Amino acid sequence: MAYFSNPPLGDSLEQVYHRHHGWLYGWLWRKLGSREDAAELAQDTFLRLLSGKPADVLQEPRAYLRTVAHGLVVNHWRRRELERAYLDALAARPELETPSPEQRALALDALMHIDAMLERLPAKVRQAFLMSQLDGLTYARIAAELGVSERMVKKYMAQAMLQCLLLNIQ
């Protein structure tokens, strides 16, 4: 679907915002069930538009806004899911080991970076890495599961480990 046209159509960002913000907010509210989250993601959607293509070349503003907003909703849900899993893991720890709010924020940020890195990996590389790191499987077992050679699993692991090093999480 073409979201942009070559000749400008004349709508400024302000016009696009005034014409479509209410609709986008309503669409997000129905998706998220939260007025606060809908307002935040609507603003983020327009910020993406502001930093991307000029609004005056949008041919289908609602389709473009919905596509951008959908990506933000997916990221929002993924972040919530990671936060929930992290908080569940924290709840299982003894209270003396509970990290500070700052440590929690840093850990959640690191998890988001790791999740984004994993999503960018090719499927078999991601699967091999997770089977090794989370399930503790040997390379031979991973090779059998994925239907590839052990040598290929080593290549997959090297590729995944390189991406981990490139994350540069502090």
Rank of each mutant, 00 (worst) to 15 (best):
Q159A: 15
S100C: 00
E60D: 15
G10S: 00
E95N: 03
G33I: 10
F129M: 05
P8W: 06
Q170E: 15
L72W: 06
D44F: 06
L162E: 13
A110V: 12
A2I: 09
E40S: 02
K53H: 12
E97K: 11
A63S: 11
L106W: 03
L41R: 03
R66D: 00
F4D: 10
R48Y: 09
S132F: 10
K31A: 12
G10Y: 04
R120F: 02
N168K: 14
H20V: 11
Q103H: 12
E60N: 15
H20M: 08
W23C: 01
M1W: 13
N6K: 11
H18T: 09
A143L: 07
L82A: 10
E40I: 07
K155N: 05
P8Q: 08
V57F: 04
K124W: 09
Y3A: 07
G136C: 01
A105D: 10
G22H: 12
P54Q: 13
A140H: 08
H20K: 06
P122C: 06
L167C: 04
L111K: 03
D44H: 14
W77V: 03
S149T: 15
L137C: 08
A55S: 11
D109R: 15
D135N: 02
L58H: 03
M152P: 01
A158Y: 11
R62S: 06
V73N: 05
H70N: 05
W77T: 00
A55R: 03
Q170F: 04
Q133N: 11
W27R: 01
V16C: 01
S12R: 04
L72P: 00
W29E: 13
A89F: 11
T138E: 09
G71A: 03
Q15A: 14
R78F: 00
S100T: 15
F129E: 04
L87R: 14
Q43V: 15
L118E: 04
L134Q: 15
G33Y: 12
P8L: 06
Q103L: 10
A107I: 09
E14P: 00
N168W: 07
E83D: 10
A143G: 09
W29C: 12
L108P: 03
L137G: 01
L32Q: 02
Q127E: 15
D37R: 04
S5V: 07
D135Y: 07
E97H: 11
E150C: 09
R141I: 08
D109C: 10
V68S: 04
G26F: 02
L28S: 01
V68I: 13
A92F: 05
G147V: 10
Q163N: 00
R126A: 09
E81C: 00
L162C: 07
M157R: 11
D109V: 13
A160P: 01
Y17W: 14
L162P: 00
A160W: 04
L47D: 12
D115L: 00
D115C: 03
R93W: 13
P101V: 10
A128S: 09
K154W: 08
D56P: 00
E81V: 03
A89M: 04
A91G: 07
M161K: 14
Y156G: 02
